[in-house]
Design a protein around this nucleic acid. Structure first.
Lengths: 195, 195
DNA sequence: CAGTTACGCTACGATGAAGTAGCGTAACTA
DNA sequence: TAGTTACGCTACTTCATCGTAGCGTAACTG
């Protein structure tokens, strides 16, 4: 009946939380840090979220950004479309994602709710590739016998491996090679890569 | 000139530290936990290591176990050898490795020394595959033009992706399919997999 | 305009972990 | 056997973080 919750406070809190997650990862995420950064009082944050955990969930959820889903009519075209997008990601953005991803990965073990968030984050990377593979099957470009799941992992795995575990990026030619390797097979590939 | 440091205390501390890392990951690693578990007094642990960090390094280093390096004379044979080994790993062991790996992954960001340990851990997975690829090139089974690094990532990436990010295992037939896909290419694969 | 209530502030209590101090005991060395 | 010193124990300080209490002020509602 009187003064309503400030949407502004909520918005500013989430905004700061996302920034902190991007910069310091889940490990650096504290309510006081969010309060300092957002200018919102810690007590007010606790009025909007029942615990630091709840705020963390909401902020993480916000960080799950959908990938583009290229549909060029050919498998190779679609995959190269994803490659283009990958190459266009800035170094800062990549590091931010790695921060969040690694922290969430570690924190998700033993925490059901974080496990769910993590799975959603992983899924958001898989879904576009799965669509591409499914369409390629529908067009007859790929054999219907192929294990879609395995194929998806074959395509995504190498990329995440380098970006996450090796902490390095791809050049466009490298991604082209990778697509060639996957499509033509290592035995048949006539790639133009270096040794 | 008098009583020397107890090798026993050092051994028991490290042993407990490794167990704790396997069960609770880097996040659950505390000096008090090691003290409790090992039966060694906390103060004694601090006499042997100058900080919790130092003990963590030593324990992590112990957890880097070398992979087998099959040499069957053929690329497919070698890769299936790795597959055999992978399938033979117990579920408990896999979970332990995932715990440690994820925690180290997250903690390595922003900590130079942990970054090094993490890189060594990742390397220990890559090296056998790189050897296999190099030998296949030397035999002429693979084109010398192939980018060894990329090929290695193509082979390892999908496996780590599922084991780590999806938290699931492979069956032997799945790994056979994966090897087929990689060697023959998705376009040419006549795999016997499910959809 | 009057009533309600969210906000920001400061302060506080609880928890858990890092690391230290001091003491009695017992193990090892010479 | 005598001297040294590591060990285990208890207790302590410090620090960061979570989460709460209470207050004055100001914003919004009816």
């Amino acid at each position: 009946m009187a003064r309503p919750r400030s949407a502004e406070a909520r918005r500013k809190s989430l905004e700061a939380a996302v920034l902190i997650l991007a910069e310091d990862g889940v490990a650096g995420f504290t309510v006081e840090a969010v309060a300092r950064r957002s200018g919102v009082a810690k007590t007010t944050i606790y009025r909007n979220w029942s615990s630091a955990h709840e705020l963390l969930f909401d902020a993480l959820e916000l960080m799950i950004v959908p990938e583009p889903e290229p549909d060029t009519g050919s498998l190779r075209g679609d995959l190269l479309g994803l490659a283009d997008h990958l190459v266009s990601i800035s170094e800062a953005e990549r590091r931010a994602r790695r921060q969040v991803f690694s922290g969430l990965f570690a924190a998700s073990i033993g925490d059901c709710r974080l496990t769910e968030v993590f799975e959603r984050m992983v899924s958001s990377r898989c879904v576009p590739v799965e669509s591409i593979v499914s369409r390629a099957k529908a067009r007859g470009e790929l054999s219907g016998d192929l294990d879609t799941r395995l194929v998806t992992e074959l395509l995504i795995g190498p990329v995440l491996f380098r970006l996450m575990f090796r902490d390095e990026t791809f050049t466009r030619p490298e991604l082209e090679n990778l697509v060639d390797y996957a499509l033509e097979g290592l035995l048949g590939a006539q790639a133009s890569g270096e040794s």
